[in-house]
Design a protein around this nucleic acid. Sequence first.
DNA 1: GGAATAGTGTCTTTTAGACATTATCAA
DNA 2: TTGATAATGTCTAAAAGACACTATTCC
Lengths: 249, 249
Amino acid sequence: MVIVTKTYTPRDFPPFAVTVDTVVLTMFQGRLHVLLVRRGIEPFKGMWAIPGGFKRPEESLLEAAHRELLEETGVDAENHLRQSGAYGDPDRDPRMNVVTLAYLAELRDVRGFAGGTDAAIAALVPISQMLGEGCEPLAFDHKQILGDAIERVRVDLALTGIATAFVGPTFTLAELRSVYEETWGFRIDGANFRRSILADGGWVIPTGRRAPSGPTGGKPAELFRAGRKWRHGAPIRPTRPSSMKKESR
Amino acid sequence: MVIVTKTYTPRDFPPFAVTVDTVVLTMFQGRLHVLLVRRGIEPFKGMWAIPGGFKRPEESLLEAAHRELLEETGVDAENHLRQSGAYGDPDRDPRMNVVTLAYLAELRDVRGFAGGTDAAIAALVPISQMLGEGCEPLAFDHKQILGDAIERVRVDLALTGIATAFVGPTFTLAELRSVYEETWGFRIDGANFRRSILADGGWVIPTGRRAPSGPTGGKPAELFRAGRKWRHGAPIRPTRPSSMKKESR
DNA sequence: GGAATAGTGTCTTTTAGACATTATCAA
DNA sequence: TTGATAATGTCTAAAAGACACTATTCC
């Protein structure tokens, strides 16, 4: 039975360290990347890790995630942070009992980042390098956390307008489509994609302007911006085309 | 900078209490209910609360959720617990800084529960009573936690086979349909529901047997069991029928 | 002009939604 | 028999998927 007083003493409850770790995902050179830091201290010194750190008593979990990411990497993900999971196995940190809350942020620009307090280096690393065949290890249970976050993004792409977070304030439908293609791992027909997206009125809105053609020419693409609508009426489905050309990469 | 030693002392990190709270949802008398406990101690003494308690250092979050639910309510939700959110605002508990991890369990049978350690009473309460118009208050931020959990269930019904968790080991399609209807709040055409469900092969499997007719007669319904398939190919969509008869309750 | 990319049109197949019809029970 | 519920069949409309064709750029 817990003694009911205004203040608790440490003997009344088992204390834990609470950390927040943020998986920052971004499109870089046409590939899905994650922002990682090289650990500068033991344990797992020198290994890649998801940026994060201890929550402070006076801040909320969200505030902690925002602050830690900014401190460690210089990246400001305010208004882009979403919860993605909690991890609290007793042995997940060899030093002590740590419960961590994973956050997720999809960002367009992850520039100007630099190693902060206790992270030696921050860098964008391709997802395929961390989760594919024969991939590199990650500190702690961060491979699990990263995997769960990716799976979350895949689902959310179909159900919400989160795809627009990966692109700029204005974007072409080809850019938006490549977000889906890269994350789901297969190609989508451009014509049908356009129809699906525009049929879901209020999600992407034409600006009337056009993007300049690329170095290889082609018709200049229309520029769109994200609308206020968030939940899709009909989901953009991750349906692998029936007789579609196989992914060629 | 954190001092790197094998063991940490309490001065190295801010300690928190970590609790796990479990939202148990079940169908009872045709309505969606949540399992709540009357708080026997301050703060919020006498108010409804989501069952839960302190995590122990030697157990995982999942194990803690399982144990606390069993202790407080007598309900064993092993293999049915899923994370649904984390809550850590500094003032969410008036006594101290508590980070809580919310779990979610959809169960068929929530019987044999009784008040345990520090919960005076455990009871099934209709969701409408806790979240509807002019509803009752809940302890702490448990109204938020409950609302988030319900929203999570609504989405998961469309994407996964979680609906079968609400019904017995064998069930009729009418029973399964009522889970969707009750959770989404509108009626679904029985014929079309049957087609959608059976088209998604491997999710529900016919047993060859039939359920006895109800007291009002009618053709005995086929009995199905849950298959191994979990993710739906095409989602069972929460599409409100266009010209459908309005919900009559 | 030719290659490349964006956008339109259209055809086919699939699925959702509505609802009529048939089947099988209890009273 | 009647009333109720389950299951099947069928029609229509909408959406997905495939792909031909046009438009506009760079080289």
